[in-house]
Simulated scan of single mutants.
Amino acid sequence: MTAANELKPVLVFDSGIGGLTVLREARVLMPERGFVYVADDAAFPYGSWEEGALQERILSLFEKLLAQHQPEICVIACNTAFTLAGAALREKFPEMTFVGTVPAIKPAAERTRSGLVSVLATPGTVRRAYTRDLIQSFATQCHVRLVGSENLARMAESYIRGEPISDDAVLAEIAPCFVEKDSDKTDIVVLACTHYPFMANLFRRLAPWPVDWLDPAEAIARQARRKVPLIDGAEHPDGFDFAVFTSGNPDFATRRLMQGFGLRTG
Rank of each mutant, 00 (worst) to 15 (best):
M1E: 13
T2Y: 08
A3S: 14
A4M: 06
A4N: 13
E6L: 14
K8C: 04
P9K: 04
L11F: 08
V12I: 15
V12M: 08
G16M: 04
I17N: 07
T21C: 06
L23A: 11
L23T: 05
M30E: 06
M30H: 10
M30V: 05
Y37E: 09
D41R: 00
D41Q: 03
Y46W: 04
Y46T: 08
W49P: 00
W49K: 14
Q55Y: 00
I58P: 00
L59G: 02
L59R: 01
A67P: 00
H69C: 05
Q70E: 15
I73G: 01
I73N: 02
I76L: 09
A77F: 06
C78G: 09
T80L: 05
T83R: 01
L84G: 07
G86R: 00
A88N: 05
A88E: 15
A88I: 01
L89W: 01
R90L: 09
E95S: 14
E95N: 10
V99M: 06
G100T: 04
V102H: 02
K106H: 10
P107G: 09
P107D: 05
T112L: 06
T112R: 00
T112F: 04
R113V: 13
S118F: 05
V119C: 13
L120R: 00
A121G: 03
T122V: 11
P123T: 09
G124S: 13
G124A: 15
V126Q: 06
R127N: 15
R127E: 15
R128G: 14
R128C: 12
A129L: 15
T131G: 10
L134Q: 11
Q136K: 15
F138V: 05
Q141N: 15
V144L: 05
R145D: 11
L146G: 07
V147A: 08
A153F: 03
A156I: 03
E157R: 02
S158A: 15
Y159P: 02
I165F: 03
S166I: 10
A169L: 11
V170P: 00
F178K: 01
E180F: 00
D182F: 08
D187E: 05
V189G: 02
V190G: 04
V190T: 05
V190I: 08
L191C: 10
C193Q: 07
C193E: 12
Y196K: 03
P197Q: 07
F198G: 06
L202G: 01
F203Q: 03
R205V: 07
R205I: 06
W209H: 12
W209N: 03
V211C: 12
W213C: 08
W213Y: 14
P216W: 07
P216D: 10
A219P: 07
I220T: 11
R222M: 15
R225T: 14
A234I: 15
H236Q: 14
G239D: 12
F240E: 11
D241P: 15
T246G: 08
S247D: 09
G248F: 10
P250D: 12
D251E: 12
F252C: 04
F252W: 07
T254E: 13
T254I: 11
T254D: 08
G260K: 12
G262S: 12
L263T: 03
T265V: 15
G266A: 14
